[in-house]
Design a protein around this nucleic acid. Sequence first.
DNA 1: CTCTGTGAATCTATTCACAGCG
DNA 2: CGCTGTGAATAGATTCACAGAG
Lengths: 209, 209
Amino acid sequence: MTYGDRIPDRAVTRLSLVLRRLEVLCAAGVKRVFSRELAEKVGVTAVQVRRDLMAIGYSGSPNKGYEVCALSQAIKAWLHPGLRPAAALVGLGNLGRALLTYFRDREPHLDLLAAFDIDPGKTCMECVGLAVHHVDELERVCKALNVRVAILTLPPEAAQAVAERLAAVGVHALVNFTHASLRLDPHVFVEDVDLSVALDRAVFFSHKK
Amino acid sequence: MTYGDRIPDRAVTRLSLVLRRLEVLCAAGVKRVFSRELAEKVGVTAVQVRRDLMAIGYSGSPNKGYEVCALSQAIKAWLHPGLRPAAALVGLGNLGRALLTYFRDREPHLDLLAAFDIDPGKTCMECVGLAVHHVDELERVCKALNVRVAILTLPPEAAQAVAERLAAVGVHALVNFTHASLRLDPHVFVEDVDLSVALDRAVFFSHKK
DNA sequence: CTCTGTGAATCTATTCACAGCG
DNA sequence: CGCTGTGAATAGATTCACAGAG
């Protein structure tokens, strides 16, 4: 097993994409699939797919491709070993509320258990089944639920402070939708998602292409 | 001017981030800034910032750094030459509605002029000032407004068809929030934003770090 | 000195090209 | 054959190391 090896950062992204396709194929009852088919579904090359599978130590069979459900399980086990982590979302503005329902509908590989806001009155219909707390409760609730991943959709001014508090109670990874660039202990992983950059890139390349 | 030169793809992302910081500094009346300061605000190295500025043909002065507002203008002119493009958003689900207000509040480098849905009754309070049309009106409205950039937040099954229709009426760039991987003429730029991948990455690295 | 600008080296990621299997 | 698996080559991006300017 090449389990603890270093892997290209972007391979993680591709494996996540491949995994989602496989889950669909597996549910649809498809038995086998070729690297080329996966590749074009995901928008990369077939060699890339094979290399990524090589990196996680998975083998298919020549002329028959990969067994869909088994591969799906293997990638899932590699990307997300251990238990599904508990997750929380902080900041129930427009974006936070939308992401809450968005993620819940898409069955992510985590359990979204709690949400926080300075104004917990922002609870909405779609949030049913999910506890909404005041930010003051952050430490208590996160500890109790053993929250490991947090999604930040709060105003940028408040982001650094909240991030530090989350890190202090054992959150290992943040998905940062804020325009703040967070400075934290290096053992805390930060995935920055900058929607404005996505627009800027689109505008830029709309001129270039 | 190294205007038409090829630039590292990721440099575009960094320039967008740097630009936003500069706009803030300029508005705050700061006169000069060093590459190192910009770098740490954005989370990259100082050399990277200088290299990116080199790539767009901009020079600072040794020992004095860069003039904030001038540099801001230069990056903006380079990233977004020509007029601000007209943009449209298709799909007014939870995410679409949230992004509409999110972007409007953040003054992107484009004019968000129209939104479409199969059910235009989904118009909401926050959408005030923005025309909401039935998807059937797509071609007519996009042509009339000269829409160049489109944001896709509709169900994945409908994405490919709508993308083709947009491309056919002259849309040059798409920001695709859909899980569909779009296949279009190569002159149409597609910026994929996959929020589920962001979560997967966070879960993965929460185990690793 | 301290900062910018940049050739050269390094590191990382992708593609090529082909061996080997069924 | 057509596919997987992979060493070797290539391309791409980042960092190093230092020249030059004020």
